[in-house]
Design a protein around this nucleic acid. Structure first.
Ligand code: FES
Ligand code: FES
Lengths: 176, 176
DNA sequence: AGTTTTCCTACCCGGTGGGTAGGATATCCC
DNA sequence: GGGATATCCTACCCACCGGGTAGGAAAACT
């Protein structure tokens, strides 16, 4: 297993929210019950989502959570990253601020270009690409219109997508 | 981090072996020293590789390990799977004997097709595909001739490679 | 006021990743 | 044969973290 249940549960929560009216917040308790997941644990996860600006909360009675953007405008890469942190197949591979994949051990004495770097960067690239190409809307049948082949057309209902410096970035992953 | 150091170290060992003459076994001790990894730990990893038939061993003085097939005939998917076990992004997604991706929780009472299944199967597919398209030869510069676009001609060394089918999602994963 | 809900901090517990220890067995070289 | 050199195997260890609980404070509703 590569992703923890944080991603699994968190994505399920997001999918649950996507099915509901965006203007009527859903309480975590009802989600927990519907999905059969521990409420106290979900609270942690949803906080991560909130801090990344993926969901909005309303406190108090009849409060709850709702998506902060339409489902078509939320890429799964954002969701997973919010829940799991940076996506890297192994320790040394990280994405710098520019989105370029770099090895943390580059520039060590006598560290000729690591033979395995090519492998892991490609793996990372393919994961991120797959995640970036899907949106929340692709997960729920109601919104799924042309989802089988995820179109690159990202302009959803009039709301511009914050550039998010995430998806779409690793055009060419590595050239050594 | 998604793969453990088992994969990281193991792949490095394989890459190290690929650089050497296949008929002159290399002792783990020398690899451990060269790569700066603990010998006792590598012993465990290399056993996994051996049980999966990826390396061969010769015991005793002047013994060691060598690849059991030419590098071009060893897909990275095999290597990673030998080291890490089955590749699945989350718990419930597994590949059955046929290579089809199934959810372990399918067929539960009132379990309508899980909304997140589509996401995780795609992720799994893209990882497996990327891993399957690369061979050990692609990692080492000497053998790297036409590696950028991995040829589909998989019959190296006479040994047939287990056909490892991913999900039916053709995509251009990397075009560098 | 009282209820419902988010929000936050602290704590817990089992599993496992990562690694060590020690010895048994096989093979080469002299 | 006798070392020396290796793989092989089983058992053990420990810190870390995933996954989860507990308890309460602050909002917002009725
Ligand atoms: S050490 Fe970072 S890619 Fe190999
Ligand atoms: S429960 Fe298996 S894919 Fe959702």
């Amino acid at each position: 297993m590569m992703f923890s249940t944080k991603a699994e549960y968190g994505v399920r929560v997001m999918a649950h929210l996507a099915k509901r009216d965006p203007d009527a917040p859903v309480s975590l308790g009802s989600i927990a019950e519907a999905e059969g997941l521990p409420l106290a644990y979900l609270e942690h996860l949803v906080q991560r989502l909130r801090r990344e600006g993926l969901v909005e909360s309303r406190r108090g009675a009849r409060g709850g959570y709702s998506l902060s953007r339409p489902p078509e405008a939320i890429s799964m890469a954002e969701v997973v990253r919010a829940l799991e942190g940076d996506i890297a197949p192994i320790e040394c591979i990280t994405a710098d601020a520019d989105g370029q994949l770099v090895c943390a051990r580059d520039g060590e004495p006598g560290h000729e270009p690591c033979a395995t770097k090519l492998l892991w960067t490609r793996v990372q690239g393919s994961i991120v690409r797959t995640l970036s190409e899907m949106t929340l809307a692709d997960l729920i049948p109601e919104h799924r219109q042309g989802s089988a082949e995820p179109t690159r057309s990202r302009e959803a209902g009039g709301r511009t997508i914050p550039t998010e410096r995430g998806p779409g970035r690793p055009a060419e992953v590595t050239k050594t």
